[in-house]
């Protein structure tokens, strides 16, 4: 029944992306092209990130936490924001509203991420005889990641695309975006620096994604109002 387990984990990992696309108006406005473009931008960004990491980071003999290295890694991680900026502003999108644009970009981004990071371990690990919770937790992590990415994309669209936003909210938007963008580094710190259990890290990620998405939603609504 190991294939069954694999199927369960895969559904948990990739299902939300599909459902997000199907259930929201994204599917009605045919934003698939935007998603794919975002995914391609993600791939290129990841490649650039990896080249940077390979060039600047030291080869560590152990898996321990080294602050300098991790800071550098976090900095390199901010390249994601650059990639999102490019996907949101530079790539030409065929006549879709800004609301749908950031959702489509975030979705494509998160799906590419899930595909690249989770499919292979799932294929190899979840089909094995040995049962671990790890793959189910990874599925949950993928959900949190989707929420965070869409939030980041939403904040990005607020920062770069919306012109007439209340000036009082600007620093809040930037701080929130910074926190969301730094989330991978934070979880990395929890996992390696504080040696949290994987299940704890995942629950933290889920919680953080909910909080951040709520804040983002409030910010988005607040910026929406003056425009109306």
């Amino acid at each position: 029944m190991t294939f069954f387990h694999f199927f369960n984990c895969a559904a948990l990992t990739f299902g939300p992306h599909a459902i997000y696309y199907k259930a929201t108006p994204l599917s009605e406005y045919d934003t698939l092209g935007t998603c794919i473009k975002a995914a391609i931008v993600y791939l290129v960004t990841t490649l650039v990130k990896l080249i940077c990491q390979a060039t600047f980071l030291q080869v560590s003999e152990h898996d321990d936490f080294d602050l300098g290295q991790e800071l550098l890694k976090g900095l390199i991680g901010f390249l994601d924001v650059g990639g999102l900026y490019y996907a949101l502003t530079q790539v030409s999108h065929r006549s879709i509203s800004q609301d749908h644009k950031f959702q489509a970009v975030g979705l494509g981004w998160a799906f590419a991420d899930a595909l690249l990071h989770r499919l292979a371990p799932l294929w190899v690990g979840a089909k094995g005889l040995e049962f671990t919770w790890e793959h189910l937790l990874q599925g949950l992590e993928s959900n949190a990641n989707l929420v965070l990415t869409v939030s980041l994309a939403a904040l990005g669209s607020l920062m770069w695309l919306r012109k007439n936003k209340p000036s009082a909210l600007v620093p809040v938007i930037y701080t929130t975006a910074g926190v969301v963008a730094a989330m991978p580094s934070i979880t990395n710190y929890l996992r390696k620096g504080l040696a949290w259990e994987f299940s704890n890290v995942v629950s933290f990620e889920l919680l953080a994604s909910l909080v951040m998405s709520f804040i983002t939603w409030r910010l988005f609504c607040a910026c929406q109002r003056p425009a109306q």
Binding site: M1, F4, H5, A11, L12, A23, G128, E130, F131
Partner: peptide, 28 residues
């Protein structure tokens, strides 16, 4: 190997399925 039971797999499938269903309904 520590292997999971079929029952467990079914429960997980049920949980994942209902979660996705709920997600769909809420988002829709």
């Amino acid at each position: 190997y520590q292997v999971a039971s079929v029952t467990f797999d079914f429960i997980v499938a049920l949980a994942v399925g209902s979660y996705l269903m709920l997600l769909f309904i809420v988002l829709f």
